Amino acid sequence: MSAAEPTILATSGGHRVGARTRVLFDALVHHAVDLSGVHGRRPRVLHVGTAVGDAEHVTARVSEAARIAGFDLTPLHLFPMPNVDDVEGTVLAHDVVWVMGGSVANLLAVWRVHGLDAVMRRAWRAGVVLAGVSAGSICWFQGGATDSFGPELRPVTDGLGLLPYGNGVHYDSDAGRRPLIHRLVADGTFATAHCTDDGVGLVYRGTELVEVVAELPDKAAYVVSREGERVVEERVAARLLPTPAF
């Protein structure tokens, strides 16, 4: 099973705290599965935790979230070495790749050492839905605003570039991200940037933004561009997704 065309869901969300577990998959992860078109069997989700150093406690919590959601989840670890013999075959065998947040700068460096950047591009073209949160959103774009280098936000500009835009995550909860994104558009680092409030996801078919979705009410996305010497920000309303029932 694969999506009808190359599909990315770039988000600032996807997880929530459960009543009995530390992490549940919220509506955005479920929407990534829906975008894959899988039916008649359990969805196959690949969890990529490179941005948090493949931390075992994160993998354990996400695995429990997948069990509750009814997904078959495989972790792809690159520390201290790949945990599978065939990285490309493993990626291509899944319906959805879900990339966790953390350090996008470290993620990009480690992916390139292992050739995972090229594998992700081939998976995207093959119809595997590429998705993720925070660093797992920025990685698909030209770059964005990151705290990978320290508490002060800095630009990262060597993303995979599957999507030809800058990306701003946590746009409503981290006060430094909006002004930095505006500066990066103003100086031409990015011609355009697509940004998300917490709980919001951007759906792309190919490189076209086709829908904005959210798992929280009253949230939005933003398209930041330049008109002459002026930076313009357009707010794009989000369609509220149904809350998963567990």
Rank of each mutant, 00 (worst) to 15 (best):
D26M: 10
D26W: 14
D26N: 14
D26P: 01
A27L: 03
A27H: 02
A27Q: 04
L28W: 04
L28P: 03
V29H: 10
V29W: 07
V29L: 13
H30S: 05
H30G: 02
H31V: 01
A32H: 10
A32L: 06
V33F: 07
V33K: 07
D34H: 13
D34A: 15
L35C: 09
L35A: 02
S36P: 14
S36Y: 13
S36I: 13
G37T: 10
G37P: 10
G37L: 10
V38L: 03
V38Q: 01
V38C: 00
V38R: 06
H39E: 14
H39V: 05
G40I: 05
G40W: 01
R41D: 09
R41P: 00
R42Y: 05
R42A: 15
P43W: 12
P43I: 12
P43N: 11
R44L: 05
R44W: 01
R44C: 03
V45F: 08
V45K: 04
V45L: 11
H47R: 01
V48Q: 02
V48C: 12
G49N: 15
T50Q: 11
T50M: 07
T50P: 01
T50I: 15
A51V: 04
A51C: 05
V52Q: 13
V52K: 13
V52R: 15
G53I: 02
D54Q: 12
A55G: 11
A55I: 06
H57T: 15
V58Y: 13
T59L: 14
A60D: 14
A60S: 12
A60M: 06
R61S: 14
R61V: 03
R61Y: 00
V62G: 00
V62L: 15
S63D: 09
E64L: 12
E64P: 05
A65Q: 02
A65G: 01
A65E: 04
A66E: 05
R67F: 01
R67C: 06
R67P: 08
I68K: 10
I68H: 07
I68R: 14
I68E: 11
A69R: 06
A69E: 04
F71E: 07
D72Q: 12
L73G: 09
L73D: 11
L73Y: 07
T74D: 02
T74Y: 00
T74C: 05
P75W: 09
P75F: 01
L76A: 09
L76C: 07
F79H: 12
P80G: 08
M81L: 14
M81Q: 15
P82N: 03
N83L: 10
N83R: 05
V84W: 10
V84E: 02
V84C: 04
V84G: 00
D86V: 03
D86A: 06
V87D: 04
V87N: 12
E88K: 11
E88V: 04
G89E: 00
G89Q: 10
G89R: 01
T90G: 09
T90V: 11
T90Q: 00
V91N: 05
V91Q: 02
L92A: 05
L92D: 04
L92I: 02
A93S: 15
H94F: 10
D95Q: 03
D95E: 11
V96G: 04
V96S: 03
V97E: 07
V97M: 11
V97S: 07
W98S: 00
